[in-house]
Computed example of a mutant assay.
Amino acid sequence: MVQFALNHMTVARLGFVGLVDLAASLGCVGIELRNDLPQPLFDGMAPERAGELIREKGLRLLALAEVKRFNDWSGDKAAEALALMRIARAAGAEAVSLIPRNDNLGMGNGERQAALRVALKALKPMLEDHGLVGMVEPLGFEICALRHKAEAVEAIEALGAKGRFKLVHDTFHHTLAHGGPYFPEHTGIVHVSGVTDPGVGIAEMQDAHRVLVTEGDRLGNIAQIADLQALGWNGPVSFEAFATEVHACADPAAQLAASFDFIRAGLARKAA
C-alpha cells in the first residue's frame, strides 16, 4: 500500500486549510508545507493551532520547507535554520527540508564535500535540540553543489548522523542526475512528479515541466517507487508538481485521485 502525501507546491493556489482538507479527503498520510509560496506559513495561523488542525484531520506534518542553500553555511544561515526549526517544533512537524545551493558555485571536488560537512555538523545539534529530522534533497541540476545522493550519505555517515538526517528521493532529480544507487535505509520521503513533454531533453528539464504522474511519464516514477519498495522502503510518497497548468487545475481532487490510481495500478502490475 502506497502512503501518499501532498506537498503544498502541487496545489499552490490553495490556502492552508484548503490543503489540509484536500489531503484528508484523498486519504493522504500527511502534508508538506513551504515558506517559498506567496502566502505566509499556515496563512498566518499560529503554528500550534495549525498543528492541531492537521492532527485533527488525521494527518502528519511531514516537513516544513525549506532552508535554502543550506550548504553555503554562515551565521545568517544558522539563524534562518533556527527560525524554521522553532516554527516546525511548535507545529509538531517531523522534519525541516534542506535544499542545497543551485547556482553553479562551490562545485569543486573536495570543496563540495567540505562545505556539506560543515553545514551538516552545525545543523545536527540544532535538529537534536528541536527533535527534528533534516531532510536533505540533492538536486539533479548540473549547476547544483549537491547533485548525487551518494555524497550526502557519505557525509551523514561520516558525522555519525544517520537518522538525524534523511534523504529526499525526488524522482525528477534522480532522473536528472542520471540515476545512481538507491539508499532506502537513508530515505525519509519520496517526491513524485511527472514530465510528459516529449520535446524536452533530460538536461533541459526544469521545475516548470513537472506535472502529475500520468500516462506518458518520462521519469519512470512507478519503477523508482517499486525499486525502493523492493529494497524494503515504505515511507510517504509526496506529490510535488510545479507546473502552472497543475496549479490552475479547476478540480485538483479529481486529477490527484486519478494520478494516485495510476501509480497504484502500475505498482500492482509490477508486483504481479
Results as ranks from 00 to 15, higher is better:
Ser193Arg: 11
Thr175Ala: 15
Ala253Pro: 04
Asp227Trp: 00
Ala258Trp: 04
Gly194Glu: 13
Ala93Ile: 03
Ser74Tyr: 09
Val190Trp: 00
Asp251Ile: 01
Phe141Met: 02
Asn234Ile: 02
Leu37Ile: 04
Gly266Glu: 03
Asp217Arg: 06
Ala119Phe: 04
Glu240Asp: 12
Cys249Gly: 03
Ala203Tyr: 01
Leu37Asp: 00
Ile156Trp: 05
Val190Leu: 12
Glu128Lys: 14
Asp251Phe: 04
Thr175Val: 12
Ala152Glu: 10
Ala250Val: 11
Val133Arg: 12
Ala114Gln: 13
Leu53Cys: 06
Arg112Met: 11
Gln206Ala: 14
Asn104Ala: 15
Thr196Pro: 00
Pro40Thr: 05
Glu128Trp: 08
His209Trp: 06
Pro252Trp: 03
Ala5Met: 02
Ala271Pro: 00
Leu84Val: 03
Gly194Tyr: 11
Pro40Phe: 07
Ala91Asn: 08
Ala203Asn: 11
Ala83Trp: 05
Thr10Val: 06
Asp36Ile: 03
Ser74Cys: 06
Ala145Trp: 03
Ser259Leu: 04
Gly220Gln: 02
Arg210Glu: 12
Arg60Trp: 04
Ala223Tyr: 05
Ala230Gly: 15
Glu56Val: 06
Thr187Gly: 03
Leu26Trp: 06
Val20Ser: 07
Arg86Met: 05
Val67Gln: 09
Gly201His: 13
Arg210Pro: 07
Asp197Gly: 04
Ser238Ala: 15
His148Lys: 15
Val192Tyr: 10
Met126Arg: 15
Ala158Trp: 04
Phe183Leu: 02
Leu167Tyr: 07
Val17Tyr: 00
Ile143Thr: 09
Thr244Phe: 02
Phe242Gly: 05
Ser74Lys: 08
Cys249Pro: 00
Lys121Ala: 15
His191Asn: 11
Asp36Arg: 11
Pro236Phe: 09
Arg60Gly: 00
Phe260Trp: 11
Ile54Tyr: 03
Asp103Val: 07
Ala155Val: 10
His191Thr: 10
Leu132Met: 06
Leu33Trp: 01
Leu6Phe: 12
Ala203Lys: 14
Phe42Lys: 10
Ala78Gly: 00
Leu59Ala: 10
Gly92Met: 09
Glu80His: 14
Ala177His: 02
Leu212Asp: 08
Arg34Trp: 11
Ile156Leu: 01
Pro47Cys: 01
Ala95Asp: 02
Ile225Gly: 10
Lys124Met: 11
Ala63Tyr: 07
His191Cys: 05
Gly163Pro: 09
Pro100Leu: 11
Asn104Phe: 09
His178Ala: 13
Val237Gly: 09
Pro236Asp: 06
Glu204Arg: 10
Ile31Pro: 09
Asp207Ala: 06
